[in-house]
Design a protein around this nucleic acid. Structure first.
Length: 799
DNA sequence: CTCATACGGGG
DNA sequence: GTGTACGTATGAG
């Protein structure tokens, strides 16, 4: 545990530093149940607290036993209500001018809603209910008014995290069964149960016993909500096995919730346990890849490889192969299943660390912070806590509508060398601080105070994270704090433009983006004036290329940094331009779609580690594997300026195809059958995967079945059927079409067609003479993205 | 060509 | 009562 800092601003962490809270359950009658982990042991405590809500019209509590209270009771978080309803007149003239305190929230809220309905009927006021009362979930009420948060003084190593993974005979809990479960936790426990030595019911019972014995604070897996828990609950119910996994012996509860992925809210069914937090690395992965566009799939295996945490001897099995493999080689599937939970443990360390640290600041449960948006999800609860403690009236939210966003544009496509990335550090927060831009409704001045506090503290934590005098655990704690603060700092702007956020302010948001566009333009002008070739700009950063030096020497980091410093000198005070990466070359394909080649590739030109494919155009998971592989190799050759290699590669691939040397599995597409047979039959509309499956003599299927098939001369054929010769001409054509499209911007059209030819043509250019193409747009394709107010600038996750 | 619909993940 | 949103691939017309 980390001792609380002596200067610990309540604005950021809440006023009560009670350490070690790992879970809380609060009800609407003012009872809170608290689990704390102190020195590794879990203890249970209870507390009482007043429920609260903000109110716009005091007459809505007329007829209730109202007791007028002074705002000073709020600072101490207490009020002795004893059945009465506390009413506090708040300072300032924001919309919600009153705070109501009660220990019978159900009854009081019901009465207020009834009074509102009557008021509407009698025409005394017309505001919708949301403009009359502002009420939060009970758990947030407890944390907000008590000033407590989760995980004070804890590092990610101080909580016990348990990962479990089911292996099943299929995806449908009504038709399939569980045959294996792997369980591990962050304190070194690991075990595997399977049906070679017990029944499915015994396996579930044993799983329950182990989880209760290990008593984890956090339970994790990849797609745990949509798959593992749902499947477990269904099978346990069918077999009559109880699942008392909560800390009070209760079982899962279900609720509809949503996870914020980029600008989007995705619905999901949340399963919850009393006293424990449940988080999903699938959600975390999706949230990451919505921002960082070079993760190609959100699947566990792909994500683990991407973050470099896949064990070197990792066992890979196709989903459909898992159960058949278990029947003949259970040991192999045990290894596979244990690899899964190990990867989940590593992924959550990387992706959920910032959410963990945020939970020590924001008055919400960790599991909800892990799915929350940034503006309304993180900043608003901090401001509401500050307003509540300060006894200040609260503004109400409204629809914001669209407004002009960041400056984005593409200035050149093709293959460019000597590429540098520069970006303005924390552009929007810096603008808000430099220009003192805050919501007009922030009468208490909390917005900029918090932002300033966070900016200063983050630098401190960042420095401490590199302080060699601290222990490894302390340094990890410091790193997590600075990462969490970075997320918060980048979230302030998002709240301004978020419709129905209490403190939203369209005009303030517009001021920020307008100033941001001006500043980026200054950067672009400054770079161009110094002979840089602009490639692409997006909100707060720019990719540009430097022309080959007159003396033929390569550019060094130092000269690039000096150039950026020069341009930085043109910018207003408080705005910092930084060198953010350098690349040997780049293939600029479309806006936000490009490939980058590291300088280290000169030494070691290997594929996967040296070429970074960014953007959805390169992401398509539906390509046949051999095309996907070819394109990566082709891009590597192009980025190295080696057109002959590209041609050789193309010809070799075509020759392999024609000679029947390409394994059929590399030619297959993989498609899911997501509709059940009845639904497909009634949809009237023919879809290839279903037709292939039916034509192969399969009248029915289970939903979720994934099939793989390839093209033969006589039609599509399933990989699982007896093998047949594939249609080489078809695949040569597929290769050519896909390559012509993806490499279109890299070479002149005629050159590209000559390079991608199977045999030499009469008028073909010599490969030595084919030069990669660069097209500069005279009129830069400039845009001020019609702002989706929710598309916040990437709150880059600290990884 | 344009328009409409389904998909992302888990065994 | 507001956020069923994003970008892409496929099939139908």
């Amino acid at each position: 545990m980390i001792a609380p800092s002596p200067i610990r601003p309540a604005l950021l962490f809440g006023s009560d530093p009670t350490p070690g809270i790992v879970s809380v359950l609060a009800d609407r009658s003012g009872h809170a149940r608290i689990w704390r982990r102190v020195d590794g042991r879990v203890r249970y405590e209870e507390a009482t607290y007043p429920s609260w809500f903000f109110l716009a019209r005091p007459e809505l509590v007329d007829g209730l036993p109202v007791q007028e209270l002074d705002a000073s009771v709020l600072a101490t978080g207490g009020a002795n209500l004893q059945g009465s309803v506390g009413l506090v007149k708040l300072a300032g003239d924001n919309h919600f001018g009153y705070l109501v305190l009660t220990d019978q929230l159900d009854e009081v809220e019901r009465r207020v809603i009834e009074a509102a309905r009557q008021g509407h009927e009698e025409g005394r006021f017309t505001e919708p209910l949301s403009q009359l009362i502002y009420v939060r979930p009970a758990l947030e009420q407890y944390l907000t008014i008590s000033g407590r948060t989760y995980y004070q003084g804890m590092s990610y190593h101080d909580v016990r995290r348990l990962q479990f993974d089911l292996e099943t005979s299929g995806l449908d809990a009504n038709a399939h069964h569980i045959f294996m479960v792997a369980i591990r936790d962050s304190d070194g426990f690991a075990t595997i149960l399977d049906t070679t030595s017990m029944s499915e019911a015994e396996l579930i019972g044993e799983f329950v016993r182990i989880v209760r014995e290990r008593d984890p604070d956090i339970i994790e897996n990849h797609n745990i909500f949509e798959f593992d828990i749902r499947f477990l609950v269904r099978r346990a119910h069918a077999l009559g096995v109880p699942l008392p996994l909560g800390r009070d012996g209760s079982t899962f509860t279900e609720s509809r919730d949503s996870v914020k992925v980029g600008a989007i809210n995705e619905g999901f069914t949340r399963f919850s346990l009393v006293g424990r937090e449940i988080v999903d690395t699938f959600h975390a992965t999706k949230r990451y890849s919505a921002i960082q566009r070079d993760l190609r799939s959100n699947g566990l295996k792909e994500a683990a490889r991407y973050f470099g945490v896949a064990p070197p001897d990792r066992v890979y099995l196709e989903g459909a192969e898992v159960y058949p493999t278990f029947l003949r080689d259970p040991a192999l599937v045990r290894a596979y299943c244990m690899n899964d939970v190990e990867e989940v443990a590593s992924l959550s360390t990387i992706l959920l660390g910032p959410s963990f640290a945020l939970a020590s600041m924001v008055p919400k449960s960790y599991e909800r912070i892990a799915t929350a948006g940034t503006g309304q999800g993180l900043i608003e609860p901090l401001l509401v806590r500050a307003y509540l403690a300060g006894g200040h009236s609260l503004p109400s939210g409204q629809a914001v509508g669209s407004f002009a966003g960041g400056r984005t544009g593409i200035f050149a496509t093709g293959i460019v060398d000597n590429v540098v990335k520069a970006d303005v550090a924390s552009l929007y927060p810096s603008i808000m601080l430099a220009e003192r831009i805050a919501p007009a409704s922030d009468q208490a001045g909390a917005f900029l105070t918090l932002l300033e506090e966070l900016t200063g503290r983050r630098l401190h934590h960042k420095a401490q994270a590199r302080n060699a005098e601290l222990s490894a655990d302390e340094r990890r704690f410091e790193e997590a704090m600075q990462g969490a603060m970075k997320v918060l700092i980048n979230s302030f702007y998002g709240m301004l433009g978020a419709s129905f956020a209490l403190f939203c302010d369209k005009s303030a948001a517009e001021q920020v983006t307008a100033r941001g566009r001006d500043i980026l333009q200054m950067v672009l002008d400054g770079l161009e004036a110094r002979s840089a070739i602009l490639i692409e700009a997006d909100t707060d950063g720019v990719l540009f290329s430097l022309p080959t030096r007159a003396d033929g020497e390569p550019w060094s980091y130092q000269t690039e940094a000096a150039l950026i410093d020069e341009v930085a000198g043109l910018l207003p005070a408080g705005i910092h331009l930084e060198h953010d990466g350098r690349y040997r070359s780049m293939y600029s394909y479309m806006e936000k779609n490009y490939a980058l080649l590291d300088y280290s590739s000169d030494v070691e030109p290997t594929l996967s580690t040296r070429v970074r494919l960014v953007g959805s155009a390169f992401r398509s998971t539906k390509l046949e594997p051999f095309i996907d592989h070819f394109l990566s190799q082709a891009l590597l050759a192009l980025l190295r300026g080696d057109v002959s290699s590209l041609q050789q590669l193309y010809r070799a691939t075509c020759a392999d195809l024609r000679a029947g040397r390409v394994p059929v599995a590399d030619l297959c597409v993989t498609m899911p059958l997501t509709k059940d047979p009845e639904k497909y039959a009634s949809s009237e509309r023919k879809e290839e995967p279903y037709e292939v499956w039916i034509n192969a003599g399969n009248p029915t299927w289970k939903t979720g079945t994934r099939i793989r098939y390839y093209q033969t001369r006589s039609g599509k054929r399933l990989l699982s059927d007896p093998p047949s010769a594939y249609d080489a001409a078809y695949y040569v054509d597929r290769l050519r079409t896909a390559s012509l499209q993806r490499l279109d911007k890299a070479l002149d059209r005629e050159d590209l067609e000559a390079v991608l030819s199977e045999s030499p043509g009469l008028f073909d250019p010599l490969m030595e003479n084919v030069r990669p193409l660069v097209v500069k747009y005279v009129e830069p394709l400039e845009t001020a993205t019609p702002a989706s107010p929710l598309a916040e600038p990437a709150p880059a996750l600290a990884v």
